[in-house]
Amino acid sequence: MSVATEATAPEAALLRVNNIEVIYDHVILVLRGVSLEVEKGGIVALLGANGAGKTTTLKAISNLLGTERGEVTKGSIEFEGVNVEASSPNALVKRGCIQVMEGRHCFEHLTVEENLLTGAFTRGGDRAGIQADLEMVYDYFPRLKDRRGSQAGYTSGGEQQMCAIGRALMSRPKMVLLDEPSMGLAPQLVEQIFEIVKKINEQEGVTILLAEQNTNIALKYARYGYILESGRVVMEGAADTLRNNEDVKEFYLGLGGEGRKSFRDVKQYRRRKRWLG
């Protein structure tokens, strides 16, 4: 596949988010103008602390906000050049954009294999294709093949994360919105899952938009990153640039320059710096 050449073409933006504002319950302003762009075949990381708006941004794109009384009140979202703010999640999955939610959300009482099959719901009765993709998912996640007959609720956290990613793959997506895949997993396992995600990105040409608190690992695998703070993008750049940026090092990677600081000092310093800068 010519994934690499596609990725270098600058005009091939698969997803374009223009200055969106999201309000929950008609009063709580969560996103105050977030813009981002994801090129085809890329891995883009959305970074930031708790409550920065990462999950909300992903849910705004996949249109899962409605069930939480949130709505996009300003701005636009384009997927493959088509406005999709009003598309239902069902229509978006059919278009090729699917979300893996934070906290896995496997169907507990369904077996692992049934979970994977629900991911192919929008593909209708394409039995041969679905069977082939099932094997493809088992190739990426051999652990799932061993546990195909167990109820998903009884599998481990890592297996559930694999199951959730595999389930999304079953819809033959062009793009996967991956929310916090490292949550609650052992560091070794996190590494392993990110390796597989990278492999999927390279071999299947699936574009990945990743929300992560674990800045370190996210910047290791992503090619580009956006940093969110209080519902705004405060910094963006290529992963290498971000990794070497002094502020990112200090605030997100925990590599402070001059000795140890108390948490309180850091916070004050940060606030002043943001306002002045």
Binding site: S62, L64, T67, S88, P89, N90, L92, V93, K94, I98, Q99, V100, M101, H105, C106, F107, E108, H109, L110, E114, N115, L117, T118, G119, F121, T122, G124, G125, R167, A168, S171
Partner: peptide
């Protein structure tokens, strides 16, 4: 059946069912 599986999926987790495109 596909619909039957979707029914059980919805029973387990509404949001997750929505997220994989089950209407």
């Amino acid at each position: 059946t596909r619909i039957g599986r979707a029914l059980r999926a919805v029973a387990d987790d509404h949001q997750a069912a929505l997220s994989v495109g089950i209407p």
